[in-house]
Computed example of a mutant assay.
Amino acid sequence: MSGEGAPSITVEGAEDLEVVVIASQWHTTVMDGLLDGARRALAEAGVRRVTELRVPGVFELPVAAARVTTGPVDAVVALGVVIRGGTPHFEYVCQAATTGLTLVSQRTSVPIGFGVLTCDTEEQALDRAGLPASREDKGHEAATAALATAITLSAWSRG
């Protein structure tokens, strides 16, 4: 399981952060779990200013992230799921989303929590979605990573 060896991350000082959660609409059950996990992580950290945006699919996540990072935002959480099919479409969408979100984060210096599941099967996605029967909660992990990075970078800039 990919969660092996994951660090335990404690988030403190996130109350005043401005966070945008961008989530795709495909695979409703998985997305509901990812969103719930991200919301729970943000609430646990005490984040009060959260905006949620829904986009059609994973391919649209980078352009949405590019747009929201033009404003006052401290962190973005990108959530989606792509399940492998019988064509190369899977590779193209996964590559575009990964590269696009990375470039937005590097260009803007805004941390983006990468909560995009790239799975071979629906069962794998459900196992990572943070649902009651899931073994992992990638929505929670992505939000926690974005918050922890935003706090670290904020401390660095105050340095």
Rank of each mutant, 00 (worst) to 15 (best):
L101C: 06
A150D: 06
D32G: 14
V116S: 11
S105D: 01
S154V: 02
V73N: 09
R48M: 02
R84E: 10
V77K: 02
R84K: 15
L35K: 05
I151N: 02
T152F: 13
T29R: 13
G13A: 12
D127R: 06
E52S: 01
T28I: 03
Y92W: 14
R128D: 04
V63P: 00
L131N: 08
Q124M: 04
S157Y: 13
I112D: 04
A14W: 06
A78Q: 10
R107L: 08
T149E: 14
A66E: 14
A142D: 00
P62Y: 11
G3K: 14
V50K: 03
P7V: 06
G71L: 07
T118Y: 09
A129Y: 05
F114E: 02
L42F: 01
T87R: 05
G37Y: 10
V116R: 10
M1E: 09
G13H: 13
A142G: 00
W26K: 06
Y92C: 05
P111T: 08
E60C: 12
I83K: 03
P56N: 11
A155H: 11
V11R: 07
A143D: 04
V63S: 08
G37P: 08
A64E: 03
T149R: 11
Q25H: 09
I9V: 15
D127K: 03
G33W: 12
L53K: 13
Q124S: 02
V20Q: 11
P7Y: 11
R49E: 11
S154I: 02
L17A: 03
H27Q: 12
V82L: 04
T144Y: 01
R40K: 08
A43P: 00
T144A: 00
V21S: 00
T102G: 06
Q106S: 06
E123C: 01
V110N: 06
E4M: 15
A78T: 12
S2H: 14
G115K: 11
T87Y: 04
V58T: 15
L153S: 04
V76Y: 12
P72I: 00
R48P: 00
R84I: 04
V93L: 09
V21N: 00
L53G: 10
E52W: 03
R107F: 01
R107Q: 11
G33K: 13
V47Q: 01
L126V: 05
G33V: 13
T144V: 07
M31N: 10
V104I: 08
V82G: 01
V104G: 05
V19H: 01
S8H: 15
G71S: 10
V50H: 03
T144Q: 00
P62G: 08
G113R: 07
L153V: 07
V19I: 07
D16C: 05
T99G: 00
A142R: 00
